[in-house]
Simulated scan of single mutants.
Amino acid sequence: MNTFVRRFLGDRGAVCTELVLVVPALLLIALLAVQFALFWHASHVAQFAAQRALAAARVEDGSAADGRAQAGRTLVGLGSRVLTRPSVTVNRSATQTTVRVDGTVTRVIPVPGLTLRASGTAAGPTERITLPAGAAR
């Protein structure tokens, strides 16, 4: 019985040591999962804002300013806490319209130098009225 008591007392504190080593690792893994989910969500927000901006900028009477304004309204409506410091670039020509929305993803893990950027791009033909070949105006 005396050896049993000595063996039992020899393992005192083993659980505390294991918790000190394992819990921070588990918390880091959980925070990395949350950071990845925020990056994924911010990418979808940027893509949706780019698509909405494209729809506004490519219409016949639309302009690049209309696309930028629509992207801004979409980003404000979806919440600007996930995609911070967004920038919207709209290029509109007579035949093609392209929109790009970029931004920084909110950080969950305060690691210096860890800056994730999310972006979304949408492109399509600019709408214009055309006449069939050989038709008179």
Score class of each variant (00 low, 15 high):
residue 2 N to S: 08
residue 3 T to G: 02
residue 8 F to Y: 05
residue 8 F to C: 07
residue 10 G to E: 13
residue 11 D to C: 09
residue 12 R to M: 09
residue 12 R to Y: 06
residue 12 R to F: 04
residue 14 A to G: 11
residue 15 V to S: 11
residue 18 E to S: 14
residue 18 E to P: 08
residue 19 L to M: 14
residue 19 L to I: 07
residue 21 L to P: 00
residue 21 L to Q: 07
residue 21 L to T: 12
residue 22 V to C: 11
residue 24 P to H: 08
residue 24 P to T: 05
residue 25 A to I: 15
residue 25 A to D: 02
residue 26 L to D: 00
residue 27 L to K: 06
residue 28 L to A: 14
residue 28 L to E: 07
residue 29 I to K: 00
residue 29 I to S: 11
residue 30 A to D: 05
residue 31 L to V: 00
residue 33 A to H: 10
residue 33 A to V: 08
residue 33 A to T: 12
residue 34 V to R: 00
residue 35 Q to E: 02
residue 36 F to K: 00
residue 36 F to I: 13
residue 37 A to S: 14
residue 38 L to T: 04
residue 38 L to S: 02
residue 39 F to L: 15
residue 40 W to I: 13
residue 41 H to A: 10
residue 43 S to D: 06
residue 44 H to L: 10
residue 44 H to A: 10
residue 45 V to M: 13
residue 46 A to H: 03
residue 47 Q to T: 12
residue 47 Q to N: 05
residue 48 F to K: 04
residue 50 A to D: 01
residue 50 A to L: 05
residue 51 Q to S: 05
residue 52 R to K: 15
residue 54 L to K: 09
residue 56 A to L: 06
residue 56 A to V: 12
residue 57 A to L: 06
residue 59 V to Y: 04
residue 59 V to F: 00
residue 60 E to P: 11
residue 61 D to P: 00
residue 63 S to G: 11
residue 64 A to T: 06
residue 64 A to G: 12
residue 64 A to E: 03
residue 65 A to W: 05
residue 67 G to Y: 10
residue 68 R to L: 12
residue 68 R to F: 03
residue 71 A to W: 00
residue 72 G to P: 03
residue 72 G to V: 07
residue 72 G to N: 02
residue 73 R to W: 04
residue 73 R to T: 09
residue 73 R to F: 04
residue 74 T to Y: 07
residue 75 L to I: 13
residue 75 L to C: 04
residue 75 L to G: 06
residue 75 L to K: 01
residue 77 G to L: 14
residue 81 R to K: 03
residue 85 R to A: 15
residue 90 V to C: 10
residue 90 V to A: 06
residue 91 N to C: 07
residue 91 N to L: 14
residue 93 S to L: 09
residue 93 S to P: 15
residue 93 S to D: 15
residue 94 A to D: 14
residue 98 T to W: 06
residue 100 R to C: 11
residue 100 R to I: 13
residue 101 V to S: 01
residue 102 D to F: 01
residue 103 G to Y: 03
residue 106 T to Y: 09
residue 106 T to A: 15
residue 107 R to K: 15
residue 111 V to L: 15
residue 113 G to M: 02
residue 116 L to E: 02
residue 116 L to W: 10
residue 116 L to Y: 11
residue 118 A to I: 11
residue 118 A to Y: 01
residue 120 G to N: 02
residue 121 T to W: 08
residue 125 P to S: 10
residue 126 T to V: 03
residue 129 I to L: 15
residue 129 I to F: 13
residue 131 L to S: 07
residue 132 P to S: 01
residue 132 P to L: 00
residue 133 A to C: 05
residue 133 A to M: 07
residue 134 G to L: 01
residue 135 A to S: 15
